[in-house]
Simulated assay, not measured.
Amino acid sequence: MEEMEKYLSTIKNETHRKHLRQIFDWIMQNFPELEYKTMWNQPVFLEHNTFIIGFSAAKKHFSVSPEAKGIKRFSNEIKEAGYTQSKNLFRIGWEDTVDFRLLEKIINFNRIDKAECSTFWRK
């Protein structure tokens, strides 16, 4: 995945880079039907050209964006995992444990909810 490696190379902290690579590898292994793209200088995963989940690296955390509907649906579980959130994303600290079970639920929810979606974003 040359495009993914190009994005990851922009993350200067090697530990952070490895952390995101592990998450992206997990997504590709568990959801091989999803397509990786770098859009707006951020990694996103698509299915039938519709947005499923995106990520963004910051100094103290990385953000996970499943769109506002995904945040609303899993808000309590996001809080229980210890992550902070806004309307459109939640933040996982670089030192925090990634709740892969929660990521799996969010990705599955978006895949099912957007199965008939013909646009990139929900309307």
Score class of each variant (00 low, 15 high):
residue 10 T to P: 01
residue 5 E to G: 01
residue 8 L to N: 01
residue 69 K to H: 12
residue 121 W to V: 12
residue 17 R to H: 01
residue 20 L to G: 04
residue 59 K to F: 11
residue 97 T to A: 10
residue 115 A to W: 08
residue 92 I to T: 14
residue 14 E to N: 12
residue 43 P to W: 02
residue 52 I to L: 02
residue 60 K to A: 13
residue 54 G to L: 03
residue 44 V to S: 04
residue 89 L to C: 10
residue 3 E to N: 04
residue 32 P to L: 04
residue 9 S to V: 03
residue 21 R to K: 14
residue 45 F to Y: 14
residue 117 C to A: 10
residue 16 H to Y: 07
residue 74 F to I: 04
residue 11 I to P: 00
residue 54 G to E: 03
residue 73 R to W: 05
residue 109 F to C: 06
residue 9 S to R: 06
residue 51 F to I: 02
residue 111 R to H: 08
residue 44 V to W: 09
residue 4 M to K: 08
residue 76 N to P: 00
residue 95 E to P: 02
residue 51 F to G: 01
residue 97 T to N: 13
residue 37 K to W: 03
residue 113 D to N: 09
residue 65 S to E: 12
residue 31 F to N: 03
residue 42 Q to N: 13
residue 61 H to A: 12
residue 49 N to S: 14
residue 56 S to T: 11
residue 56 S to P: 02
residue 18 K to R: 12
residue 5 E to A: 03
residue 90 F to L: 07
residue 29 Q to F: 10
residue 15 T to G: 08
residue 49 N to A: 13
residue 15 T to I: 04
residue 61 H to P: 04
residue 88 N to V: 00
residue 64 V to F: 05
residue 89 L to T: 15
residue 28 M to G: 08
residue 77 E to W: 07
residue 81 A to W: 00
residue 92 I to R: 03
residue 113 D to S: 15
residue 87 K to D: 13
residue 2 E to L: 05
residue 110 N to Q: 14
residue 62 F to N: 04
residue 2 E to C: 00
residue 6 K to D: 04
residue 47 E to R: 07
residue 108 N to Q: 15
residue 7 Y to K: 02
residue 110 N to T: 00
residue 58 A to H: 10
residue 110 N to L: 07
residue 63 S to G: 13
residue 107 I to Q: 04
residue 4 M to W: 05
residue 18 K to A: 10
residue 93 G to D: 13
residue 47 E to F: 12
residue 69 K to Y: 13
residue 37 K to Q: 10
residue 110 N to W: 00
residue 46 L to N: 00
residue 100 F to H: 10
residue 55 F to I: 00
residue 106 I to P: 07
residue 34 L to A: 00
residue 8 L to M: 02
residue 49 N to Q: 14
residue 8 L to H: 00
residue 99 D to R: 06
residue 30 N to M: 05
residue 67 E to T: 15
residue 59 K to V: 08
residue 2 E to M: 07
residue 35 E to T: 12
residue 1 M to K: 05
residue 34 L to R: 01
residue 53 I to H: 02
